Computed example of a mutant assay.
Amino acid sequence: MFHVIPLTEQKQSPNRTILFEGGQFGTPISLFLMDAEPGQGPALHVHPYPETWIVHSGEAEFTVGEQKIMGKAGDIIVVDPETPHRFVNTGTGRLQMTCIHASDHVIQEWV
């Protein structure tokens, strides 16, 4: 068995970010395909599971707990469960990255 989710059926926000929640397809992961303008990014939040970011293009400042780190194309960053985190596109172009959630649906609490 396999599933193909055409682009026209993917949940896309006004800023072009796509959300995929794997539970309905029998997979234990969910993800965001980020496509953020300069200055965009989510507010501080936590998840009860780890999150993995893969930066495909652009650059961002990541806040992880009390630390701030820069991420750029090719970097993989892993955040522990229950760790407050956020990121913002600090570059001059678009930030494209995959945010992998170790859950069949996204569980997110804003802090």
Rank of each mutant, 00 (worst) to 15 (best):
F25G: 07
H3L: 04
Q108Y: 09
A60D: 01
R86H: 04
L44G: 00
T90Q: 11
D35Q: 05
K72P: 12
E37Y: 05
P50T: 08
L44A: 03
T52R: 09
V4P: 01
E51Y: 10
H47D: 02
L44T: 00
P28H: 03
N89H: 00
L33M: 13
V4S: 08
V78G: 01
L19M: 11
M70G: 06
I77K: 06
V88I: 13
A102S: 05
P14R: 06
M34W: 05
N89F: 12
M1Q: 04
V79W: 04
E9D: 09
Y49P: 03
D75S: 11
T83G: 02
E109S: 02
D104Q: 05
Q40L: 12
M70K: 15
Q10Y: 05
V79K: 03
A73N: 08
N15R: 10
Q12W: 02
G91P: 11
D75G: 11
T98M: 15
I107L: 13
I76K: 07
V106T: 04
W53D: 00
L33F: 14
V4G: 03
E82S: 09
A73D: 13
Q40D: 11
P38G: 01
Q96Y: 13
H47M: 00
P84Q: 05
G41M: 08
F2G: 06
T17W: 05
I77N: 01
E61N: 02
T90V: 12
Q67G: 02
C99R: 10
V78W: 00
A43T: 08
L19C: 05
G23F: 15
W53R: 01
A73K: 13
P6I: 12
P38V: 07
T63D: 00
T8H: 07
V111W: 04
E9V: 12
W53Y: 12
G91M: 13
I76Y: 15
M1E: 08
M34G: 04
L44R: 11
Q67L: 03
P14V: 11
A43F: 15
C99N: 05
I77M: 05
A60I: 12
E51Q: 02
E66A: 00
Q108N: 08
Q24H: 15
V46M: 06
H101K: 09
P50S: 09
Q108D: 09
M97Y: 08
T98Y: 15
F87I: 10
G58Y: 13
G91S: 04
P81H: 07
F25V: 14
A73E: 14
T90M: 14
P50L: 06
F87P: 01
I54M: 04
H105I: 10
P14N: 05
